[in-house]
Nucleic acid binder design. Structure first.
Lengths: 117, 117
DNA sequence: ACTCTGCATCGACAGATGTCAATATCGACT
DNA sequence: AGTCGATATTGACATCTGTCGATGCAGAGT
């Protein structure tokens, strides 16, 4: 039932919605600029880039948080960054028993690929 | 002679360099993560997305700063954001007489397109 | 030399952000 | 119920960031 860990309900960060003409098309609307900035901002941190990479590159399409410990920061910090990625709409999380799994939100990779198209 | 307005010489922001396997490839090196985060961070602001779009989408391949005034913030703020884009290696600037022109730095669009490849 | 115009820089300030230690929460298992 | 392990949340702190007004500076034109 993939409940997307409703944690970020009080975080109005304008998640990464349907979204956006290419960055190189004329007259990008201000609203699209905000949407794109939300996505870029979420990835504007080395640790979050690494986290997203671990999630996106995993063969199973998802990663257990318990496998994300070796990034040089503490557990609360990892959790904090995962929340940022969630609030930006880049990843979804699901609790299964003791562990929590993260996956890339649908459409995100496609939208990234469309940035320069 | 495109001098790239040497203003950002004291800003060690690790510009966007050659750079990087796709975000979706396994085991992204931490250094590449830092490089990519630099790029994302620079675009993690609505006004900078708009500025970059104005530059990237312009038919002449460059834009005069004098044509970037209608973004809802003051002139010093526009200048500040342009500097961020410069320091991140996303754009180059050149003074010609009274005006300053910005263009997308070579290779930047290609690297953006390669993010999901 | 003086003035004007375009853009960059400086100084200040409020608000956002990354980090950690401490604590809470949620499941699983006795 | 009670404990334990895995994540999330809270509170505090230092640092970073966006914005503005004021100022500096370079080129053009008089």
């Amino acid at each position: 039932m993939v409940k997307a860990t409703s944690t970020g309900e009080d975080e109005r960060e304008a998640a990464v919605a349907p979204c956006c003409p290419p960055l190189t098309a004329p007259d990008l609307p201000a609203e699209d600029a905000r949407t794109m900035a939300t996505m870029f901002k979420a990835l504007g941190e080395p640790i979050r880039v690494l986290l997203f990479n671990r999630v996106a590159a995993h063969p199973d399409g998802e990663v257990c948080v318990c496998d994300l410990g070796d990034l040089g920061v503490g557990q609360p910090t990892v959790s904090h960054h995962l929340k940022k990625l969630r609030d930006a709409g880049l990843v979804l999380s699901e609790r299964r028993g003791t562990w929590v799994y993260y996956r890339v939100a649908p459409g995100v990779l496609a939208r990234m690929g469309a940035i320069t198209r």
